[in-house]
Design a binder for these strands. Structure first.
Lengths: 217, 217
DNA sequence: TTTTTAATGTTACATGAATAACAACAAAAA
DNA sequence: TTTTTGTTGTTATTCATGTAACATTAAAAA
């Protein structure tokens, strides 16, 4: 959990610093970052320290420098190639979304079991699932998005394991545990909705607690 | 955070108990639940205790009883009506997904600014965004899914606030903070991918740490 | 040149969540 | 009937995360 949050914060720092930069700012102090995010300045400095990001005693941090270092840490300076398994509505939506590149992420191919979905041309080709092992090997893919129907989830997990995929963003409602071989990030929409509904029904009404339900900062 | 996790666990308990039930089981002990989820049995008992779920000293917990109580707590015994703002690819995908009902969630309408999207017939009607205030009031809606393009996110937030929506599941990459009036759950796909890529690149390779990146248990 | 200032970097502390340990006790066994 | 057993419910402990405090120091001011 600890590193998890730290990486999430790094992303928040990045987005905030990009906003500062677009306003023409060049340097920031730790509390300029902490305040808008609702965290303490010492946590910002600690995070920076842990990732080897340093500032100057009186002049704070260089935005450009911090951004460059964060992007390095997150790997956003390279291109991270990701594939999608299951080209249904969700899969298609992700394939056509073009906001990933700013974080160094590129959807390079889709895979589907249904031959009607196969598409050799276009920005992102859709290939038959049988081709996955070869493709992953040749293109050195390590992360996949699973967007298949829940009934195919377990089977797809096995396929991805065999193809040597190391990380899965799992959009199916089936929950998988990470193992030493493969890291699974379960992205469960139902759960988030149930959670939100619970909060709205139980806390907001009476005005008590009302704290953030948000995943991210 | 604390309640958050507790509700997420409640959902895990529910899903696991449903599996047990479908296998014909009638009663369980706390460690039958804890072990598959990778948590301690005392945490399961503590969660149950906090929500007023009790078992019997020697015979454990009645699956049926626990399920009923969990569904009550989560509100899954009623129907929770939810609307979607933005009927693009993601919005459409969610509208046509029919796995929500098992958690007591029903998508009852979509709203869009584009007149070409308006659709009066069909399972889930799509209405012009101007109708939202009236619809929310008449149908007593408190939760909305935001699936608009990022450029429209801020404006949509204002619209939802004016319509007295209390909870938002935000699919845009724009991060919103919860306030006393409105709870926002930021569901940011880029962030999750960056996180996953970071883990796979930095931990899995060397075999160290490898812990779960998953949101949920 | 010396002093003051104001920020970083780091250490100590507080808070909270999960685990471990245990007390209570109902059911089963003797 | 008494003893044993095994599970719940609860208390104590551990561990980790974020905050607060502070020591350090480079720059500015005097």
């Amino acid at each position: 959990m600890t590193i998890q949050n730290r990486i999430a914060r790094l992303l928040s720092y990045k987005h905030l610093l990009n906003r500062f930069k677009s306003l023409g700012l060049v340097r920031v102090f730790s509390d300029n970052i902490a305040d808008p995010l609702g965290i303490s300045a010492s946590l910002v400095r600690k995070d920076f320290g842990l990732f080897g990001i340093s500032g100057s005693q009186k002049g704070g941090y260089s935005i450009e420098d911090v951004l460059h270092k964060i992007n390095n840490i997150l790997g956003s300076n390279e291109v991270n190639r990701v594939i999608i398994i299951g080209v249904g509505r969700i899969g298609e939506a992700l394939m056509s979304y073009n906001g990933f590149h700013k974080d160094g992420i590129k959807i390079v191919a889709g895979f589907d079991i249904d031959v009607k979905k196969i598409k050799k041309t276009g920005d992102v080709p859709v290939k038959p699932i049988e081709d996955i092992n070869e493709y992953v090997k040749e293109n050195n893919i390590s992360v996949a998005i699973m967007a298949v129907p829940d009934i195919a989830a377990q089977q797809t997990l096995e396929i991805l394991k065999r193809a040597n995929i190391r990380g899965i963003l799992n959009f199916t409602p089936v929950k998988f545990k990470s193992t030493d071989d493969i890291t699974v990030n379960n992205f469960n929409i139902e759960n988030e909705l149930v959670n939100l509904i619970y909060f709205v029904n139980n806390f907001k009404k009476n005005g008590k607690e009302a704290k953030r339900v948000s995943n991210n900062i």
